[in-house]
Amino acid sequence: MTAAAARTSFWRKPSILPGFGLSMGFTLLYLSFIVLIPLAALILRAAGLSWDEFIGVVADPRALAAYRLSFGASFLAAAVNIVFGVLTAWVLVRYDFPLKRFVEGLVDLPFALPTAVAGIALTALFAENGWIGHILAQAGLKVAFTPLGVVIALVFIGLPFVVRTVQPVLQDLNKEVEEAAASLGANRFQTFRRVLLPAILPAALTGFALAFARALGEYGSVIFIAGNLPMKSEIVPLLIIIKLEQFDYAGAAAISVAMLAAAFVLLFMINLLQRWSRARIGAF
């Protein structure tokens, strides 16, 4: 009794699950090697610059334009994905149709495809002489080599995240809940809006956060379709590569740190939003 009590500490709550020390130690070690140490090295590298130099690199107009594009396009792409991802998940869960397995597989394709392949394919489609590009060009819409092209590439790579997070939640939703809503006089739209949507919102937000984070770091598919015009269609990862190619390692690290900080704050905020919406549902 006393021995057990003595082993309880701030770090360790009494539990019947064995192996806390070993597994926690391994987790910390692993996270340190994979995440923390590389990030620390990055910050250390950027710290080689003086404060004024750092601000000069980070707040350079070209860098600012790149942030705006990266964050703006990622946000827009994730927003598009949350709508169409939920719709796709809905169709996959609720209806039976021929080739359903095939469509299921299609959803995961953006996960597996080398992103450069996706970039080339999208560019070929949306270039002014491409299948879709020439139709849009007649309507006066230019996609390839513009920020719009960036958004499309990011929508492509982000789609599976929303679908795959929402799908299991939709599957678990009890059909009785919808029937209850109907028996109380709710029409289809009211049932969706008041009963289903709130139930899948936390999962959809998780998918949104994942798609957004993925889009921020995306490089391969974007550089082909973006055209990479400085101040116009240049994303942050590309700017960092350019700096590296010019052997400006400190500058590259400085921009990375700025990106890292902004991404961390945004993901943290999305996390809070998720917690809030999850708390309202609670666990049954």
Binding site: V177, E179, A180
Partner: peptide
């Protein structure tokens, strides 16, 4: 018609 489901089917949120 008021219908009461076996597992209540309450709206959790």
């Amino acid at each position: 018609v008021g219908f009461v489901f076996q597992h209540y089917a309450l709206f959790k949120h």
